[in-house]
Amino acid sequence: MSTPSAEKTGARVLTMGEAIREALAEELRRDPTVFVMGEDVAEAGTAFKVLLGLVDEFGPERVIDSPISEPGITGLGVGAAMTGMRPVIDIMFGDFITLTMDQMVNQAAKIHYMSGGKLKVPMVLRTTMGASRRSAAQHSQSLHAWFSHVPGLKVVVPSTPYDAKGLLKTAIRDDNPVAFFEDKMMYQLKGEVPEEEYTIPFGVADIKRPGTDITIVATSSMVQVSLAAAEMLAEIGIEAEVVDPRTTFPLDKEAIIESAKKTSRAIVVDEGYQRYGVTAEIASVIADGAFYYLDAPVKRIGAMDVPIPFSPALEDLTVPTADSVVETAKALCGRN
């Protein structure tokens, strides 16, 4: 199931932010119908500086600063996508997708189906997720589960620069509305990204670390957390397999089930709220598909079900950590 991982290609090293910028630049160059629109995306290069320099190459006609109008620009994206363009709409903080909901859920997600397949909406909504920046309750949520719930939308949650680049290029070329979630804390994360062009298909999980004793299915920055946990577990003789679905829809159920069957134990880690969240969906996939192979119930670790508090003393309690993954894994393996 695993696609060629970066380490095998002997490629150059980019940050996640640079990989995303490169994907956008390549697609803007390749396809004149692609454009980027959002608040402070041009000269400022976004609030996170991820798009710095794009406007210099492509000009303000294609890298467009918008008013603070999330529903407006998302709706414009839907309409432009239906009529020949490939918009990439930038929504600065994932918390603000709440403002885009009607356009994404009632418009973008439904139009292809409602039109009997006559119309399509090839747009990308790029946004962010992740806590730990001391940004408090309205700037820290991971709301990717919301879009994952809606038939008609695809949802991408990359965990490495390599994946981010390949998946973003696929998202732009996809004929459906795609929500692309970038963890703010990972923009500086470095990883190998080959010079040569590549794309990564949706719905194909990547085994980020092979192992035999327990499966950890993790998304976005939780992949990094789980890899750190796997190192700690290895020291006490537990070999964890870290499986990264990379897209929450389409979801590579087969890869997840296969890994769980092999290891007989599974944990699902995701930074969205645990309640009714991505972890619940994936845990049920495992429970369904690997039931007779499991030696223990599937465990879930998500964000604590509270608004993200500002105080560092409290915020740090709300997100999954390598330690919490290790503790859960040890308990599942009967190693307490």
Partner: peptide, 25 residues
């Protein structure tokens, strides 16, 4: 706000301040 709100969310209901807000508008 017991440290739960921070700079962008101070509310002081005793003085009629229903709160700062981090969502523009």
């Amino acid at each position: 706000c017991k440290g739960k709100g921070g700079s962008m969310h101070i509310a002081d209901q005793a003085n009629g301040n229903l709160g700062a807000n981090a969502i523009v508008g």
